[in-house]
Design a binder for these strands. Structure first.
Length: 426
RNA sequence: GGAGAGGUGGCAGAGUGGUUGAAUGCGGCGGUCUCGAAAACCGUUUCACGGGUUACCCCCGUGACGAGGGUUCGAAUCCCUCCCUCUCCGCCA
């Protein structure tokens, strides 16, 4: 959520920021509503002040037994109350409209973010590793996985519906090995591990920005709970309505969770394989940082995610998303893309963002630093995949496959797989 | 799921319609005392929003005693709905 006051005082800056994002958010619509809201509040509060004064006077009259004067005063206050009620009706309406409008505004891009309309405007910042040159025709994971008994697409559909997958045998074990390897790696970098609910309530989803605008992307239970699309939601909301201590910042959190996405509007994209499915596993990184350190915290987070791929020996490149390609809550985002032989290209496997105070304002996450300032201020929240487990599994299978259909196990994963160095058909 | 009890300031805990935003204690902060500390004593200690100012310093106002509604001139106090916590029973990984 944007700071209403900032929008009020910097309408031109906000207008151009919205344009660069390709967001059709109406600054002028906001300004008009905001002005009306403040005028109504001033009027209502003046009337309330006079009512409070009269009520006090009535109390005094009653004590003195001057009943008739008290009755007359009561009648006068009833009039005031009617006017207040009328104004309050409109105030509540305007208040809701202002809030809803603010909740649908995306974050403002940081000044370091390149301008661009879509992913073609993203800027590569670095590459690591060299895509392997195969001396045979490498198989795509949608062929390789089933042949190994590692991935079962048909049964995923049978058990749930299309775009759900089942992992079996080495596939299931490799998946679990990846999760543990990632969590252990992040723990080594000072991240505290959490285990959180896979379902979240509406307030939680609103705190991180999925609601109210993106409800169609979520699975919803008939109790009004939602399946989380990412552990970012839970890790960030852990501190909703809390005031953190500056001395403890930045906080480094990590969690493994399944993630659920409706993928509404993704029809026809990545239909083969398990690149885009309704349920996938992910290890997430979240940080809470003081504003003056959040961008440096973002750089470190990207490195932490990249290291997972480096340890696994998977070639990747990192790009800065341009204004038009960034997510709703982000002020700056780096995507890490892993090399996938089946795509003959790099494919997103991690997205690391600094959301500045955008989520903190929605979720009321603050910090205090008595030596530096009075009261409390909003923290900056960051999140990143560290990394998407399903896509990582795919990357390992495809990049480490051999001519005979077996797959070499990356060194770092062997301790997690009982020491085996290769996996073949079950 | 059934029955009962309860949700008040960082914590504990008063307060059942009228200067109660809220007693008291603890904790925190500042001070006195002390070489220093402890103890004791004194003072202080919520937040949001709106306005004046426009720096979130200060001043005024409004609202907030789980949340939302209602009754009333006036609600922490009365009524309704919802949420949550605790105890017992049931069920259960």
């Amino acid at each position: 959520m944007l700071d209403a006051r900032y929008v009020r005082e910097n309408p031109d800056a906000v207008r151009s920021a919205m344009e660069s994002r390709g967001a059709g958010w109406s600054v002028d619509g906001f300004l008009a509503l905001d002005a009306e809201r403040r005028a109504l509040i001033a009027e209502v509060e003046t009337l309330q002040a006079s009512r409070n004064e009269s009520s006090k006077a009535i109390g005094a009259l009653m004590k003195e037994g001057r009943r008739e004067e008290a009755e007359a005063a009561k009648a006068a206050v009833r009039d005031v109350n009617e006017r207040i009620a009328a104004l309050e009706g409109r105030t509540a309406e305007v208040d809701t409209e202002v809030r809803e409008l603010l909740l649908t505004a995306p974050n403002l891009p940081d000044t370091s973010v390149p301008c661009g309309a879509d992913e073609s405007g993203n800027v590569e910042v670095r590459r690591w590793g060299t895509p392997r040159v195969f001396d045979f025709e490498p198989a795509a994971h949608w062929d390789l996985g089933p042949a190994l008994g590692a991935i079962d697409f048909e049964r995923g559909v049978k058990l749930a519906k299309s775009r759900f997958v089942v992992l079996g045998g080495w596939g299931a074990r490799l998946n679990r090995a990846l999760i543990n390897f990632m969590l252990d790696t992040h723990a080594g970098h000072g991240y505290t591990e959490w285990s959180v609910p896979a379902l979240a309530n509406a307030e939680t989803l609103t705190g991180t920005g999925q609601l109210p605008k993106f409800e169609d992307d979520l699975f919803r239970t008939d109790e009004g709970l939602y399946l989380i699309p990412t552990a970012e939601v839970q890790l960030t909301n852990l501190h909703r309505d809390e005031v953190l201590e500056a001395a403890g910042l930045p906080l480094h959190y990590t969690a493994y969770t399944p993630c659920f996405r409706e993928e509404a509007g993704a029809a026809g994209r990545d239909t083969r394989g398990m690149i885009r499915v309704h349920q996938f596993d992910k290890v997430e990184l979240v940080k809470f940082a003081a504003p003056e350190h959040s961008f440096e915290a973002l750089e470190e987070m990207v490195r932490d995610a990249e290291q997972v791929l480096e340890l696994l020996g998977l070639p990747y490149r990192t790009v800065t998303l341009c204004t038009g390609d960034m997510g709703f809550a982000a002020a700056k985002t780096y995507d890490i893309e892993v090399w996938l032989p089946s795509y003959g290209d790099y494919k997103e496997i991690s997205s690391c963002s600094n959301c500045t105070d955008f989520q903190a304002r929605r979720a009321a996450i603050k910090y205090r630093d008595p030596g530096a300032f009075k009261g409390s201020r909003l923290v900056h929240t960051l999140n990143g995949s560290g990394v998407a487990v399903g896509r990582c599994l795919v990357a390992v299978l495809e990049n480490y496959q051999r001519r005979d259909g077996s797959v070499e196990v990356p060194e770092v994963l062997r301790p997690y797989l009982g020491g085996v160095s290769e996996i073949g058909p079950a």
